[in-house]
Amino acid sequence: MDDTLKTTINDDDLVKHIVLIKKWIDQYDQFLSQYTGTGDGKHIMLNNAGLTTNSFHYETGRGGYFSTNSGTSEGQTLTLRGALLAYKATGKQIWLDRALKLSDALLNVLYQDKPIPDEPDVNWVPHWLFNAKQDFKSQQYFTNMSVVFTNGKATIKKDDIFKVFSVRAADATLVCDSPFSQVNGKSYSIKSLDYPDNNTAIVTLDENVTGNFLVVYGTNTGDVIHTNDNYDAYPVWRKLEQKETVCAIDSLAWSYDCFKLLFEVTGEEKWNKALKSTAASIRHAFHIDNAIVYIAPPRIGYDIFENGMYKYSSRDVPEIYFQNKVTGFIDIHYPQAKYGEGQIGKGSVNASFGKDDYLLVKMSSKQKLIMKVALDEENVLSRR
């Protein structure tokens, strides 16, 4: 057998891997240290405020959906999570210092300086997009510019034009005030767009038509979005409205991990409060409100018995229901009673189960008792 094909693991292989991983962590520390600050304003990873950039290189984000200067909540929380895990693995103070700076920026910018709630608040969530590198102008859009097309072609001259969104007949209207709006009336498909310079757009339509048509276009001529400012990318790069937050739901899971690690590392109660609010936000954001057979933890602050949930009691001393603010689950207290039973469940009329389907039931009690779970297969479940 060829020795190169052997897969035997030597006794010290794992030790070598640990050494290698530590080397990688040190190299990443050196990289972040070198590219933290303002630098050349383009090739940075962390700015002076502790915000993470979306990309090291000066390139447009998501095909130009947001500015090259941007950072995102996903990037911020994942970088923070990595710094905390690196600190736990190495014990090096520089990783904890970096994590605390990242967490300060997370609260100050993404959470918009809103205090960590003492009680879980589902509205305490991070904004998803911010300027991490250099000041840039926000965008504007215009919906009713009359343009003369000749044989399906027109040249538009506007300062700092970045996009032509649509072309429609002179008597057609937009369904709503948006550059992406559908059209009431005749619209013309755009075959190609060419931008020979920052102030020119050449539009070619699919149809070889001549006449005055209405054009929807956008320009980079709005108010300045400063470094460390939040902004949004839809429908164009724009400043936030007062009290506006646009949350990327997937970032809540990373925020949860970050607050959990911060509480473990620092022991500060504020991170435990942040953890509880984030847990409530996740339950609220991912709440199933159109399910047939699911019984999900109810949303904190809402009616426990929503979405088809029911309770029934024939006990002489009825049970008491309340929601656990830590877990989100329904807690039931059964006072001592002489007779009767209590029921909780969710009804379903059209549920159908295959041979591989199942119901997972989780129950617990602080006292010893006998539990009986009954499935009425004849009247409740229909088989395939």
Results as ranks from 00 to 15, higher is better:
5 L>P: 06
12 D>I: 15
18 I>G: 00
30 Q>L: 03
33 S>Y: 12
38 T>Y: 06
38 T>I: 07
40 D>R: 01
44 I>S: 04
44 I>L: 08
48 N>L: 05
53 T>K: 00
56 F>E: 04
60 T>W: 08
61 G>E: 15
61 G>W: 08
66 F>I: 06
68 T>E: 10
72 T>Y: 08
75 G>A: 11
90 T>P: 01
96 L>K: 13
98 R>M: 08
99 A>S: 14
113 D>E: 07
118 D>C: 00
122 V>D: 01
126 P>T: 01
132 A>Q: 01
133 K>R: 01
138 S>P: 07
138 S>H: 04
142 F>K: 02
147 V>K: 04
153 K>L: 13
154 A>D: 02
156 I>Y: 01
158 K>W: 02
160 D>G: 00
166 S>P: 11
172 A>Y: 14
176 C>I: 09
177 D>S: 12
180 F>W: 13
182 Q>I: 03
186 K>A: 13
188 Y>K: 10
191 K>C: 00
196 P>D: 15
197 D>S: 10
199 N>Y: 03
200 T>E: 13
203 V>L: 14
205 L>E: 05
208 N>A: 05
214 L>W: 05
218 G>D: 09
218 G>L: 03
219 T>D: 05
224 V>T: 07
225 I>C: 01
226 H>P: 07
227 T>A: 00
229 D>C: 12
231 Y>W: 04
236 V>M: 06
238 R>M: 05
245 T>G: 06
251 S>C: 15
251 S>W: 15
256 Y>K: 03
262 L>W: 14
268 E>C: 04
272 N>G: 01
272 N>Q: 12
280 A>H: 05
286 F>K: 05
289 D>N: 13
290 N>H: 15
290 N>F: 12
293 V>G: 06
294 Y>P: 03
294 Y>S: 10
298 P>V: 00
299 R>C: 13
307 N>I: 02
309 M>V: 06
310 Y>D: 07
315 R>L: 09
325 K>D: 06
334 Y>F: 13
337 A>C: 08
340 G>F: 11
343 Q>S: 10
350 N>G: 02
353 F>W: 14
353 F>C: 10
353 F>Q: 12
359 L>G: 11
359 L>S: 15
361 V>G: 03
363 M>Y: 02
363 M>L: 04
363 M>C: 05
368 K>Q: 09
383 R>Y: 12
384 R>M: 11
